[in-house]
């Protein structure tokens, strides 16, 4: 309990400007994996995190990982998949632009597996690829690792963690 109180006290010590600065660092950490730790002075750790996340993301794209789209037939599960993809930051939008031709995040209505719509066709082709299952795991892992890093950055910034 005293430890918890000390944590609360450290939050208060940051002040409004300190919290604003920390929020900006967390946003930067989301946008560029590893940058949050670098801005907080953990340069080596930040570079290693960046390397791991970019490696996972690159492996995911190289193995035709599925960039999830919200499916109205499975709204919760598919939304969680999209969130996992979004965790890696704006790089996800760039990847979607490259793969689907635009930064799209949901199907237009229920997907029709015979549709010739580019997004649905590309999604279908990647799902059928023999290596897509590996790529999808790498993409989700990259996003989820970066989301986890945001909490780590917050804890370091509020001095809950060294």
């Amino acid at each position: 309990m005293p430890e918890r109180m000390a944590h609360d006290a450290s939050d208060d010590n940051l002040g409004r400007s300190g919290m604003g600065r920390l929020a900006a660092i967390v946003a930067a950490a989301w946008a560029v994996p590893g940058l949050g730790h670098i801005l907080l002075g953990r340069v080596q750790r930040g570079l290693l995190f960046a390397l791991l996340i970019w490696a996972s993301f690159a492996l995911g794209l190289a193995h035709e990982g599925r960039l999830a789209l919200r499916d109205p037939r499975q709204p919760i599960l598919s939304s969680l998949q999209v969130i996992a993809n979004l965790g890696v930051g704006p790089a996800d939008a760039v990847a979607r632009f490259s793969v689907y031709g635009k930064p799209v995040y949901r199907f237009r209505g229920a997907p029709d597996w015979r549709s010739e719509d580019r997004v649905e066709r590309v999604f279908r082709e990647r799902a059928r690829s023999g290596v897509s299952i590996y790529g999808t795991a790498y993409l989700w892992t990259a996003g989820l690792m970066n989301l986890l890093l945001l909490f780590d950055v917050w804890d370091i910034g509020t001095r809950r963690k060294n």
Partner: peptide, 21 residues
């Protein structure tokens, strides 16, 4: 397409990440 190789790479990335964190 080696499932084993992917498993090893994946385990290396994830274990390094959590150990560093």
């Amino acid at each position: 397409r080696s499932h084993f190789l992917h498993m090893v790479i994946y385990a290396t990335i994830v274990s390094t990440f959590f150990a560093t964190m």
